[in-house]
């Protein structure tokens, strides 16, 4: 079981390329979503104050 997980993480020796290709873009996209959502919340709060 542990060997299978390690093999999966290792990706046949290409782990750096594959995991970086997924990690950086998905982090960027979901961080942008979180930033925009928090901006929208702030705007809504500010709008009700006015």
């Amino acid at each position: 079981m542990i060997d299978e997980i390690l093999n999966f993480i290792n990706m046949n020796g290409h782990s750096f390329y594959i995991w970086t290709a997924y990690f950086i873009p998905l982090t960027l996209i979901f961080s942008y979503i979180l930033i925009q959502r928090s901006k929208l919340k702030r705007m809504k709060k500010y709008e009700t104050k006015i």
């Binding site: 942008y32 979503i33 925009q36 901006k39 929208l40 705007m43 809504k44 500010y46 709008e47 006015i50």
Partner: peptide
């Protein structure tokens, strides 16, 4: 989804 959130932010900003 992101576009609609961003457009809503923009419109609210203009309103404020």
């Amino acid at each position: 989804y992101i576009l609609l959130v961003s457009v809503e932010i923009n419109l609210k900003k203009r309103k404020i």
